[in-house]
């Protein structure tokens, strides 16, 4: 009913590019931008990647999403257990992060294989862990594990170092232990209440919705 152009003008939307080469011009003043990278698996189409850059108020700065990709049989055989890291981190993650105009102060992902994108970016990459269920033993006794020991084993997965920042539980690969400190330092540079109040899990819901919307638009 209302012309879309009018609406776009109203909300100051601009499309930088739809399909094209990498955008190299990074915004120098982007130390307050947060990157959120996720990959969605669709039974029929394969993997969709989405990368959302937010400012510290949680408002979108950029959004990039991939067309679906699928590993072929040769990749499945030859990459073996490294296939997911290759697809999530290199194929999707690297491609998406290269497209972004704004460099993030750190990148969050909710998919462990996507941590492999770390070798292609200078910013630290952390895995956002959901709410942790307290482990129950057979007798039904609930054991609470303090935050400092959560990463040593169990729910955060092998090879991960988990830690708590404000209301969020994060993890970095054990072989990238320095990232833990780096993430903490960069969050500390953000506005004071950020770490306490910002839910780092929430933006992934937005990315999924946006990918689904983009899929609908293609159909």
């Amino acid at each position: 009913m209302q012309p879309s152009a009018k609406l776009a003008e109203m909300h100051s939307i601009s499309i930088v590019s739809e399909v094209g080469g990498p955008m190299h011009s990074r915004d120098a003043n982007s130390e307050h931008a947060l990157g959120f990278l996720t990959v969605m698996e669709h039974a029929q189409h394969g993997l969709f990647g989405g990368y959302l850059l937010l400012n510290v108020a949680g408002r979108p700065l950029e959004f990039h999403c991939t067309t679906p990709i699928k590993a072929n049989r040769a990749q499945e055989i030859l990459y073996g257990p490294t296939l997911q890291s290759f697809l999530y981190g290199e194929q999707i993650g690297q491609t998406l992060l290269d497209k972004a105009k704004t460099a993030p102060c750190f990148v969050c992902t909710d998919q462990q294989p996507a941590l492999a994108v770390r070798q292609y970016v200078s910013a630290p990459v952390a895995l956002v862990l959901g709410e942790e269920e307290p482990p129950d033993d057979e007798a039904g006794q609930v054991w609470r594990v303090d935050a400092a020991h959560r990463g040593l084993a169990g729910p955060s997965g092998p090879g991960l170092l988990a830690f708590q920042l404000g209301r969020n539980r994060l993890a970095v690969p054990c072989d990238a232990e320095d990232d833990r400190q780096l993430v903490a330092e960069r969050i500390a540079r953000l506005p004071e209440s950020f770490a306490e109040s910002f839910d780092l899990c929430e933006p992934f819901l937005r990315i999924r919705e946006a990918i689904e919307e983009a899929q609908k638009a293609v159909r």
Binding site: S14, V16, S17, R59, H64, C65, Q75, L78, K99, K101
Partner: peptide
Amino acid sequence: SVPIGRPGVSVRSFVFAQPADT
């Protein structure tokens, strides 16, 4: 020869102006 291939991944990009800039 087993082609493994690395097809390019197409990306759609959107940039949003912040209201504070308007």
